[in-house]
Amino acid sequence: MHIIENQYLGLALKNPARAAVLKDAAVFAANAYAEAVGVSEVATKRDVLNRMLLFLLNPYTPNYLLTEPAQQVISRIKVGDLFDIEILRTLPENKTLFYNFLVGKDRVLYCEWNKNELYVIDLQRYADSPAIKRSVSLISLTASPKLFDPTTVEAIRCLMFLNLTAPELIQLAAGKKLGTRAQGHYNATSLPVVLVDSTWNKYLVRTEGFEVSGHFRLQRCGPGNAELKLTWIKPYQKHGYVRLPKTEGLPKETA
């Protein structure tokens, strides 16, 4: 993979020349946050804006670039009416965490986890328009929401995949190469990048019969089964067998 800064929205916006776009997004996000939590004091609103500026402009926030195999797996995580929001308690309660998820080349999810609240800023660009589409979401574990907008769903999927599984993480410093020209990675940007890959697609059903698609299962583990781990159950063939594939890629869903 050859990573070029201006091809990935989340990296391109960190360029000083694009700072105005992020500042505009910070104002938009701060106003939305203040409205959601009922902030009206001028001083408090200013604090919220400064927090959002730090959130978006901080060069030390990890840039998690999701590879195509990882995105395929993430898309299979179901976050619907029956989703238990308490799963997010696996994230540290008294620690503020920041994530920049690069979802393809034209979308970035800025996620902040703070005091059992998840705040997400979703920025997308389109080829036929120079404008950046902005949307935000805020969920709190104390509110126990049952309905989730698309921004929240995508953020939860990414967080669950990163924190409740064992993805392959490849650290690429700015301007560094790893591996060969044919099969390696080159970070041609001025920012460090963490490639997030999936290794669950190593098995594929190759027989005829009734195929059971791969799926996720939340499994209790650790001392007293107090911890949660998102486990990938590989696809299998009833009345058949499973073997290693010759090519990479997640198995296709069957009707």
Rank of each mutant, 00 (worst) to 15 (best):
L230H: 02
V37G: 13
K252F: 02
H215L: 06
Y99A: 11
N201K: 02
N6Q: 14
R46S: 15
V120N: 05
P251T: 01
Y110Q: 12
R217H: 08
S135K: 07
N163K: 07
I3S: 02
E253N: 05
G80M: 00
L138V: 07
N163S: 11
Y33K: 14
F83T: 00
G209A: 11
D106G: 07
S135E: 11
N6Y: 12
K252H: 03
C111D: 09
E93Y: 08
L164H: 05
T44G: 06
R206C: 10
E208F: 15
R157L: 02
T67M: 04
R76F: 00
T142E: 15
A43D: 14
K14V: 03
Q72V: 00
S129N: 13
K234W: 01
D149S: 03
I77V: 01
A188I: 06
N114G: 03
N50K: 13
N201A: 06
Q72K: 04
N187I: 02
A182P: 00
M1C: 08
R157E: 02
A70Q: 05
S40L: 06
L191Q: 15
I121Y: 08
I170V: 14
V194W: 11
V103A: 08
D128V: 08
F98T: 07
F83M: 00
L82E: 05
V120P: 04
A131T: 07
P130F: 09
F161P: 07
D128R: 10
P62M: 11
A226E: 13
D197C: 06
R206Y: 13
K176W: 01
L65M: 13
E154D: 05
C158P: 07
G214I: 06
D81R: 05
V242S: 08
G10Q: 14
Q171K: 10
T189D: 11
D122Q: 05
S135Y: 01
G249M: 04
Y8F: 15
L250K: 02
L141K: 08
N114K: 15
